[in-house]
Amino acid sequence: MENILEVKNLNKQYNDFALQDISFNIPKGMIMGFIGENGAGKTTTIKAILNIIKKYTGEIKIFGLDNRQNSAQINAEIGVVLDDSFFPEIMTPADIAKSMPKIYPTWDSALYQKYLQEFSLPQNKQIKTFSKGMRKKLEIVTAIAHHPKLLILDEPTSGLDPVARREVIDIFQNFIQNEECAILLSSHITTDLEHIADYITFINKGKIILSSSKDDLLNNYGIVKCTEKEFNQFAKTDYLKYVKNKYDYEVLVPNKKEFPKKYPIKVIDKITLDELMIIMIKGEK
């Protein structure tokens, strides 16, 4: 089993929204960044992977097992942070410490306590007194304390300040030191992913528009900035998308080393995930 998670032709129909043929894989030892606008289908995809929604077509395999038929076995070895769903807020971290060892056979109380201290999360205060950042940290700590093999994290860094984001990302990188593990991490804040993600899967309006190694994307893709006259000379096969601005054209090209050899252009910039996301969504072909 080389892939820890495989999603194949996932389709889910709602009245006003649909997931269409979602497919991607996460190999062992890797961090997959799952990016897209709010409402693009990230959470729905994650809910299908986790069996929170059950009526869909397609195949989802976790640890090589069908996710709907083997959920008990799978759930014991995954750790989850959901966008908006956790223990009731009248509970305390100490309450969680009491119930979780009876839910996960592999729960590591010492590890949980260590992270609570590290993040200065109070034992006996109700979650409702916590700031949004503290809540997220508690959710992350709760998700990793049973030594899962796959972390599925829906927007785990939202609401965190930069310092806390750094702390949390350190935890993820520590987690991935074990090459049998993997992480699926959704975010609309791409800077987190720009550093640590190995792969990027990009979803828009319910469809995957890109799933690739992040280094391939960032090292090879580029943005050409040029005049209309220059743009008109480009063959359609040499670029992916373009945006027409007031003073210039921005053109996304898949190979920033080869492109200048073919066309005499002045400016070709390296790309960030944010720019990639914007130009893929707003751009025309």
Binding site: N75, S85, I90, I103, Y104
Partner: peptide, 24 residues
């Protein structure tokens, strides 16, 4: 009344992700 706390924090969706959560 615990049902209303559960639904306020969408506990049920989270419970589904725990081992045998839907049943237990």
């Amino acid at each position: 009344s615990t049902f209303s706390y559960d639904s306020y924090n969408k506990w049920d969706a989270y419970a589904v992700t725990l081992p045998n959560g839907r049943k237990n």
